[in-house]
Each structure stands twice: as C-alpha cells, then as structure tokens.
Lab assay of single mutants.
Amino acid sequence: QAPETKIVDKSRVACDGGEGALGHPRVWLQIPEDTGWVECPYCDCKYVLKGSKADAL
C-alpha cells in the first residue's frame, strides 16, 4: 500500500507510525523551507507543509 500523505500546519512534526504499539519509535521531523515536505525514515509517511510550494502540487 502507498505511504500516507499528511498536510500539516507546522514545519516540525512528530511521527510514531500512528498505530500505537504497532507503530515505530517517535521521531521529530523538520520540514525544509526549500522543499516544503519531509518523509518519515521509518514508515515513509510524507508530511507536506500547508501553503508551501509542495502543497500546491
């Protein structure tokens, strides 16, 4: 199944896999201003900063 994409309001987000005990260790991710998105290294969930150029795609 394809990784999930989430639109977020802040450039710093936490990801834990979203499945409680079945998820992964919580990691904090920083969305770079130049790209407007970041992917979780564990679950490949893509976080897109709302209003960024990546959000316009």
Results as ranks from 00 to 15, higher is better:
residue 56 A to F: 13
residue 49 L to Y: 06
residue 45 C to N: 15
residue 43 C to E: 01
residue 29 L to R: 00
residue 21 A to K: 11
residue 7 I to L: 12
residue 30 Q to P: 02
residue 18 G to S: 06
residue 15 C to A: 00
residue 47 Y to T: 03
residue 55 D to R: 00
residue 4 E to Q: 14
residue 49 L to W: 01
residue 15 C to Y: 00
residue 47 Y to M: 04
residue 53 K to E: 08
residue 45 C to Y: 15
residue 57 L to I: 10
residue 46 K to C: 10
residue 29 L to G: 01
residue 54 A to L: 06
residue 21 A to C: 00
residue 27 V to K: 04
residue 41 P to T: 04
residue 43 C to N: 00
residue 4 E to N: 15
residue 42 Y to A: 11
residue 38 V to T: 06
residue 26 R to F: 06
residue 31 I to E: 02
residue 56 A to C: 07
residue 51 G to I: 01
residue 23 G to D: 07
residue 14 A to S: 10
residue 22 L to I: 05
residue 48 V to T: 01
residue 3 P to V: 11
residue 3 P to L: 12
residue 38 V to N: 03
residue 15 C to M: 00
residue 7 I to V: 11
residue 34 D to C: 08
residue 38 V to Q: 01
residue 29 L to M: 07
residue 31 I to G: 02
residue 13 V to G: 02
residue 29 L to K: 01
residue 5 T to A: 11
residue 14 A to W: 14
residue 42 Y to N: 06
residue 16 D to S: 10
residue 8 V to C: 09
residue 55 D to V: 00
residue 46 K to Y: 06
residue 30 Q to L: 11
residue 16 D to I: 08
residue 48 V to A: 01
residue 52 S to R: 00
residue 10 K to Q: 12
residue 13 V to E: 07
residue 11 S to P: 12
residue 52 S to T: 05
residue 29 L to I: 04
residue 20 G to M: 04
residue 36 G to C: 04
residue 43 C to P: 00
residue 3 P to K: 15
residue 25 P to L: 08
residue 24 H to N: 03
residue 55 D to F: 00
residue 11 S to D: 10
residue 3 P to R: 14
residue 40 C to Q: 05
residue 1 Q to T: 13
residue 5 T to G: 07
residue 40 C to G: 05
residue 29 L to N: 02
residue 46 K to L: 09
residue 5 T to I: 15
residue 10 K to C: 12
residue 22 L to F: 11
residue 41 P to W: 06
residue 21 A to S: 10
residue 35 T to S: 09
residue 51 G to A: 04
residue 35 T to M: 08
residue 48 V to M: 04
residue 46 K to Q: 06
residue 41 P to E: 04
residue 25 P to V: 10
residue 52 S to L: 05
residue 36 G to P: 01
residue 26 R to E: 07
residue 35 T to A: 05
residue 46 K to A: 01
residue 5 T to W: 15
residue 16 D to R: 03
residue 15 C to D: 00
residue 10 K to T: 14
residue 20 G to N: 07
residue 52 S to E: 09
residue 20 G to L: 02
residue 5 T to M: 13
residue 47 Y to F: 15
residue 32 P to A: 07
residue 8 V to I: 06
residue 22 L to H: 10
residue 9 D to W: 02
residue 55 D to W: 00
residue 57 L to K: 05
residue 17 G to N: 02
residue 55 D to M: 00
residue 33 E to P: 11
residue 46 K to N: 04
residue 20 G to D: 07
residue 8 V to R: 02
residue 27 V to D: 01
residue 55 D to S: 00
residue 46 K to D: 08
residue 11 S to A: 13
residue 12 R to T: 14
residue 28 W to P: 02
residue 38 V to W: 00
residue 57 L to T: 13
residue 18 G to C: 15
residue 22 L to Y: 09
residue 36 G to K: 01
residue 37 W to Y: 13
residue 10 K to I: 12
residue 47 Y to R: 00
residue 14 A to K: 07
residue 44 D to I: 11
residue 56 A to M: 13
residue 32 P to T: 04
residue 10 K to G: 10
residue 43 C to V: 03
residue 2 A to I: 10
residue 44 D to Q: 15
residue 18 G to E: 06
residue 7 I to M: 08
residue 31 I to L: 01
residue 26 R to H: 06
residue 1 Q to C: 15
residue 31 I to H: 05
residue 17 G to M: 03
residue 8 V to N: 03
residue 11 S to E: 09
residue 28 W to G: 02
residue 22 L to D: 11
residue 49 L to R: 03
residue 8 V to T: 06
residue 29 L to Q: 02
residue 23 G to Y: 07
residue 22 L to M: 13
residue 34 D to F: 05
residue 42 Y to I: 14
residue 44 D to G: 15
residue 17 G to H: 02
residue 45 C to R: 15
residue 51 G to C: 08
residue 17 G to W: 02
residue 8 V to P: 09
residue 11 S to N: 12
residue 6 K to F: 13
residue 5 T to R: 01
residue 33 E to A: 09
residue 55 D to P: 03
residue 21 A to F: 09
residue 26 R to C: 10
residue 10 K to A: 09
residue 41 P to G: 04
residue 1 Q to F: 13
residue 45 C to L: 15
residue 1 Q to A: 12
residue 15 C to V: 00
residue 3 P to S: 14
residue 31 I to P: 05
residue 10 K to L: 07
residue 42 Y to S: 11
residue 27 V to P: 05
residue 2 A to W: 13
residue 8 V to Q: 02
residue 13 V to L: 08
residue 18 G to M: 13
residue 41 P to N: 02
residue 39 E to V: 14
residue 10 K to M: 09
residue 42 Y to T: 07
residue 9 D to A: 08
residue 36 G to V: 06
residue 28 W to N: 00
residue 15 C to E: 00
residue 43 C to A: 00
residue 1 Q to P: 12
residue 27 V to M: 04
residue 52 S to W: 05
residue 54 A to V: 03
residue 47 Y to V: 04
residue 51 G to Y: 09
residue 11 S to I: 09
residue 49 L to E: 09
residue 50 K to Y: 03
residue 43 C to H: 05
residue 4 E to H: 15
residue 12 R to S: 11
residue 55 D to N: 01
residue 2 A to V: 12
residue 9 D to C: 13
residue 19 E to D: 10
residue 29 L to V: 05
residue 44 D to N: 15
residue 31 I to A: 01
residue 38 V to D: 02
residue 51 G to P: 08
residue 13 V to K: 00
